[in-house]
Design a protein around this nucleic acid. Sequence first.
DNA 1: ACCACCGGCTGATCTGGATCAGTCCGCCGT
DNA 2: ACGGCGGACTGATCCAGATCAGCCGGTGGT
Lengths: 238, 238
Amino acid sequence: MPLVRKLGAFVALSGAELAVLEGLRKRRRTFVAGRDLVQQGQSDQAAYILMSGWACSYKDLANGQRQIVDFQVPGDFLGLRSVLLHISDHTIEPVTQIEVTEILKSDLLEAFANTPRLALAIFWAVSRDEAMVVEHLVGIGRRNAAERLAHFLLELGARLTLIGQGSKEGFDCPLTQYLMADALGLSAVHVNRVLRHLREADLLTFHDGRVKFIDYDGLTDFADFDPSYLDQGGPLLV
Amino acid sequence: MPLVRKLGAFVALSGAELAVLEGLRKRRRTFVAGRDLVQQGQSDQAAYILMSGWACSYKDLANGQRQIVDFQVPGDFLGLRSVLLHISDHTIEPVTQIEVTEILKSDLLEAFANTPRLALAIFWAVSRDEAMVVEHLVGIGRRNAAERLAHFLLELGARLTLIGQGSKEGFDCPLTQYLMADALGLSAVHVNRVLRHLREADLLTFHDGRVKFIDYDGLTDFADFDPSYLDQGGPLLV
DNA sequence: ACCACCGGCTGATCTGGATCAGTCCGCCGT
DNA sequence: ACGGCGGACTGATCCAGATCAGCCGGTGGT
């Protein structure tokens, strides 16, 4: 289970805690690509754990544009932030067909009260999510298009590597250039051009749903990518 | 105490919980403007509650630029996110002279285990912080300079109103145009021009450390400002 | 068999905001 | 009393990336 692998990067969970996580397996649901799970403005009573497939969370603006805040890959929480806020501030949309496990708000509060270590693990996951959003903010605010795109793909690669779905060679990527543009604050046209530049610079390729890192170290250097904000340093007892 | 006022927007805290918050009052510290509290790359064992003054959190880039992620006002936590991450991913710098209360990691973990409602309140505060960062991301990614600046000042106004230091008339603002530029992903030159445009459009003025909203509703409309992400709807029992 | 649509890809043109290069004023230190 | 400095403010120029307009190939619907 990707979530266990991910949380394992933070804390070695005990048998009892794993049992609670396993206990969640019951309420499985499937969503097709494009149909929103959670909508901006809605008041939520549930969050989800993504079991398979990719999703994205975004905000709509009055002028019709949208900004994708982050993509979620297996093992990530969906909508966790809006469980405690009175209404959801964003929309969650599956990018591919996805399988999720529903977590009711009540279960979450119970886990908080009864399994403090699990609560800490969830707190860590939220902190890590926030750190990723912060890094995206820095990217959009201060990196140019090429650095931003390279950084973005390196981050996805690192996150997928953690759950065993990527490596320094590359990863399978179901995103369109339009989706990347919405996430990076660029136009799709420009994403296309920048991908060409990166290909011509022998840094990476992106074809047929597959990202290949040609020169991983060169790319890391080019994008000024320091993965420490992903906090994947390995498990540490609290 | 501004923190109690702020958390009160989320949950009515019991006497025992207030006592725990009061118990934190002991380890008070003061910092002068400009001297970092927490540095990027450092491994942290403490967070802080801001009692008075303003601070900002930012990330440095390899090319010498920086991106301010958010400003903190009284009642806000400083460095909470990096308590659980192995190393801090950002720097915190006081904007004015500030007073803080130190919270040791151990105290925080204890509060998590023993006062679950307080833990929830803290969880809420982190979620709200993340929601603000997300809104900044949307602003930088998709709003033009004028909308972005207007939105930014409206957000600060709403946050300060919550702790009794602002209103729809305006608020005292110790920020320089350079600091705003670093937060908004703009150049200081352009911030200056945009402030002039907003003044000439009779929307707001910013002079001598004071923001005055001339036409609050017009400004809200102009910036497409919907404060629901700040989750200041009023207390609700969990 | 055809056409509508989506995603990738490209060239030409336009523009918001950066950058450069200053001025002016008030404050602080000596 | 003087120089240095930080912050507000301005005009001129430049450029990264948006926008517009269009082509191409695959695929799904009828």
